[in-house]
């Protein structure tokens, strides 16, 4: 590059280019602000022209996010964002499509669509804000609320067993599965970037604090003071070490994970070496079931495997049909089968 030429065009964008003139209306202190900020910061780095970025959401506090992104945006209806994203991506593969959803939107009312978009591997990035509560409707329990959770709609405690979002994603054949935390800004933007660069459906669960209806839901392990001891950063090809001094590790005993102190005969090579590319989903699944206080909460990319995207396969069939049958001739198609002429 010559020194005279300043960078031009879409790649010269900055965070402010992705900020809209709309007033952000989340409650003060909401974890959504951080996710929005990291998302806006990430955009210029993706190298995608702004007009080719689309944010699609459903309903819920999280789903307001598209209004605050100066890209194309669609704030749709409850749970259905993946369906709109699918129709759009199948027809236009130049677009970078994000789906913004939450634990209620994605796992309750929209559970079916979430399953199917992931198994098809439509090339979109799904960010699921998990605050384990219904915020917009003012405080009912959600599909990720803990068993026994007392809320406005469960005064004696919820009797519903919660879902593990990452387990759902892995079982639904998602090709990219990760987790991050609203207040861990560096980790969040790095995780979102990995997800955005993945070809196929990338699914990111973000632990997000609702300071009004479920304050401190994740603080037992998310608080900076204890985070190093109570979460484990996953890094591909690296042993699972955690603790302030990286003195603890996860070892696999068959398919049972266990916490061990490193040293005293346990070396790093004895630990579980993270392999996000493993075709076998069993190890990913074990990670998705590890939760505080039994284990440190795994953070980062759990799974990242390559397989063809849905829309590329659809396009391939169109291309093959044209190659085999030639470009469609409508007049010939009209006259398919038995025809006759009346003079």
């Amino acid at each position: 590059m010559t020194t005279e030429a300043a960078p031009e065009g879409p790649l010269a964008l900055q965070r402010k280019d992705f900020v809209t003139d709309q007033e952000v209306r989340w409650c003060p202190g909401c974890g959504d602000y951080s996710i929005l900020a990291q998302t806006q910061k990430l955009m210029p780095d993706l190298g995608v022209p702004r007009e080719n970025i689309v944010f699609i959401s459903g309903i819920g506090c999280n789903s307001r996010l598209p209004y605050y992104m100066n890209t194309y945006g669609f704030h749709s209806i409850h749970g259905r964002a993946p369906t709109i994203a699918t129709g759009l991506r199948v027809m236009n593969q130049d677009l970078k499509v994000f789906v913004i959803t939450g634990d209620g939107d994605g796992l309750s009312i929209g559970g079916n669509h979430l399953l199917h978009v992931m198994r098809r591997n439509v090339d979109i990035t799904i960010v699921l804000f998990n605050n384990r509560i219904y915020g917009l409707t003012k405080g009912q329990y959600s599909p990720t609320s803990e068993f026994g959770k007392r809320t406005k709609s469960s005064p004696m405690g919820a009797v519903d067993t919660p879902l593990h979002p990452l387990s759902v994603a892995i079982s639904a054949e998602a090709s990219f599965v990760a987790r991050s935390l609203d207040i861990d800004q560096k980790h969040l933007i790095a995780t979102l970037e990995r997800a955005a660069r993945h070809k196929g459906t990338s699914f990111v669960e973000v632990y997000q604090n609702c300071n009004v209806f479920n304050d401190g839901a994740f603080m037992e392990f998310a608080d900076k003071a204890v985070r190093a001891d109570r979460t484990v950063r996953l890094e591909h090809g690296q042993p699972m070490l955690f603790g302030k001094e990286r003195e603890k590790g996860i070892r696999l005993n068959g398919t049972t994970p266990e916490i061990v102190e490193v040293g005293n005969g346990v070396s790093e090579s004895d630990l579980w070496i993270h392999d996000e590319t493993s075709e076998d989903p069993v190890l990913s699944f074990i990670l998705s079931r590890m939760h505080w206080p039994d284990f440190p909460e795994p953070m980062g990319v759990i799974r990242a495997v390559e397989r063809p995207t849905y829309e590329s396969l659809v396009q391939q069939q169109v291309d093959e049909a044209i190659e085999q049958q030639g470009e469609g001739d409508l007049d010939a198609l009209f006259m398919e089968g038995d025809t006759w002429t009346v003079e």
Binding site: I56, T83, I84, T86, G87, L88, V90, M91
Partner: peptide, 8 residues
């Protein structure tokens, strides 16, 4: 929903 996405 997919038809809406295509129309969008």
């Amino acid at each position: 929903g997919s038809a809406i996405g295509a129309a969008f």
